[in-house]
Amino acid sequence: MSASPTLVARTGSFFHRYANPGRFLKLGARLQPWLTWPAIAFTLAGLGWGLFYSPADWQQGDSVRIMYVHVPAAMLASGGYAGLALCGLLSLVWRHPLADLAAVEIGPVGACITALCLATGSIWGKPMWGTWWVWDARLTSVLVLFFLYLGHIALIRAFDDPQRGYRAAAILALAGAVDLPIIKFSVQWWNTLHQPDSITLTGAPTMSASMLWPLALSTIGFSLGFAAIVVARTRAAVMESRIRALLSSPRRGGGAA
């Protein structure tokens, strides 16, 4: 306990080194191509492999190819929300200005990927399970995640004073993180229609290696793509806030408006 204040301070200063918007713009500009191009390459490779070269499943037939979209989307839906919760923590404890901007930008992207997860799951469920939707624990908890994203998007923009919006949204992001372990373990804790995870930390994957490879590639591709889009949007947000500051600064000369 005695060491914690300095640790907290040190972690804070570490994060604050990247809180400087100017520094972030430089870092982001350097990082961007390393995220964007590998994202495109990995996604195309993974999806192309999955769509044309990976084998059909013995009982699901070719519909198993939906997995190469559905599973990465599901992983990112949870991962994106974890990112949102981390931004919430940085915002509430260290008043990190960049974390607030990032939280504003992660929200819509995360909501989109969660919607994609739900939609592709539904499309996959119809031919395989025989239904578009059931209210089992896995599906319901992911739907709750989608609504948490929507709530976060609305809340962070709901106040005239942006600082109050950031604070409220950060609390929602942290509280909503309770849903993440529920999503993860729902298929183990309760009887669900959704099957348990094929890839676990503890056991060997119950999936053919010929399907695991394209899945891994597309998961890497989707993750890099998510990061690339979030970084690009956050860079744009930093520039936009600087534009607003310049426009409202008394120093500003007339002309371009």
């Binding site: 519909s63 990927i113 889009i229």
Partner: peptide, 23 residues
């Protein structure tokens, strides 16, 4: 390919979403 409409719909949605977000 079996279940072609379902596969096309899934990949189509993913492509549309990726394009809209990145552009």
């Amino acid at each position: 390919m079996t279940h072609l409409p379902y596969i096309v719909a899934s990949y189509g949605l993913a492509a549309i979403m990726a394009l809209v977000l990145s552009i």
